[in-house]
């Protein structure tokens, strides 16, 4: 088995994210325009971050993930997902494949992407150092799922959390449902999942999703102050306490992945994605009805 290269640089400046050390804290900033949509390039750089974490993260004793864009993250790159779906009927040789074969190939391809995302998110979730998401603005879909891998969410008043996937005929596929189940009551999970509504920062704080609620533009500063406290504790004790208090819901994650991969190749999903991608209105994030899958 090939050993994966471990990034040695204590700073990284990629196309979609960057990181640097501020004292004992590793600060990761998402910076892909427009709103940190997670596509293959984002995934590749998240994988580099995951390798850095597995390699010890340069001795960091806390990590903060934030965004320099107008929101935290709008979720998966739906345009990229749609492009992958519309090309599903073609083989690499350019020949059209029978629908059953094409669907199996597509399911395998998307399953591969989801597996890679899950490996990264599991690494973030299990990282032995304390982790904080500093969230402002939109924290939707895959972005919300990313925030849920962190130990704590510090939300500024502009933050909004949402699982819009049902609008597309899908469920979250990056581990969001099991991780949300871990953090809040099931009624809140169902409210978010089944209505596709967004929760404002205040309500997110009230239900225990966000551990801190701060003023507009204050999330990163508040996360840094929290990190200053967290790094004072003995690292092995922190790691042990975290592993005990934050078990990774492996079986539920596996089942969510299977459900997502089953749903994503349904024709209704393609129609909903097409409507989103080709929508020329200025309101793609507002609620709408979509055709059944």
């Amino acid at each position: 088995m090939l050993r994966e290269p471990v990034p040695s640089a204590v700073s990284f400046d990629g196309a979609t994210l960057s990181w640097h050390h501020a004292g004992a804290c590793l600060e990761v900033s998402l910076h892909r325009a427009p709103l940190n949509e997670i596509g293959t390039e984002s995934l590749r750089e998240l994988e580099i971050l995951a390798r850095y974490l597995r390699g010890g993260a340069g001795g960091a004793r806390a990590m903060i993930v934030s965004s320099s864009r107008p929101g935290f993250c709008a979720g998966a790159d739906l345009r990229e997902l749609y492009a992958g779906l519309v090309s599903r009927g073609r083989s690499r040789l350019g020949r059209w494949l029978p629908p059953g074969v094409a669907r199996r190939l597509l399911r395998a391809r998307i399953g591969g992407f989801i597996d890679r995302i899950h490996r990264v998110f599991d690494t973030l979730d299990r990282a032995p150092l304390p982790t904080i998401a500093a969230v402002h603005g939109v924290c939707f879909g895959g972005g919300f799922e990313l925030a849920l891998t962190m130990d704590r969410i510090v939300a500024d008043r502009t933050a909004r959390f949402c699982f819009p996937e049902l609008r597309l005929g899908l469920v979250p596929g990056f581990g969001g449902i099991p991780r949300l189940e871990r953090d809040v009551g099931n009624a809140v999970v169902r409210e978010l999942l089944l209505t596709g509504r967004s929760l404002g920062a205040r309500r997110a704080h009230e239900v225990g999703l966000a551990s801190e609620l701060v003023g507009r533009g204050e999330a990163l500063a508040a996360a840094r102050r929290a990190a200053e406290q967290l790094i004072r504790f003995e690292p092995r004790t922190v790691a042990a306490a975290k592993a005990f208090a934050k078990p990774v819901p492996a079986e539920r994650l596996r089942r969510e992945r299977a459900l997502f991969c089953e749903l994503v190749t349904r024709p209704g999903v393609l129609r909903a994605l097409e409507a989103f991608v080709e929508d020329t209105s200025v309101r793609p994030y507002l609620p709408r009805a979509v055709g059944g899958a």
Binding site: V138, R160, G200, V282, R283, P284
Partner: peptide, 16 residues
């Protein structure tokens, strides 16, 4: 000429 992001910001303003 507001876009969906601005609409969400307005929603937050209204709730507050």
């Amino acid at each position: 000429g507001i876009d969906s992001m601005q609409a969400l910001d307005l929603l937050t303003d209204l709730e507050e």
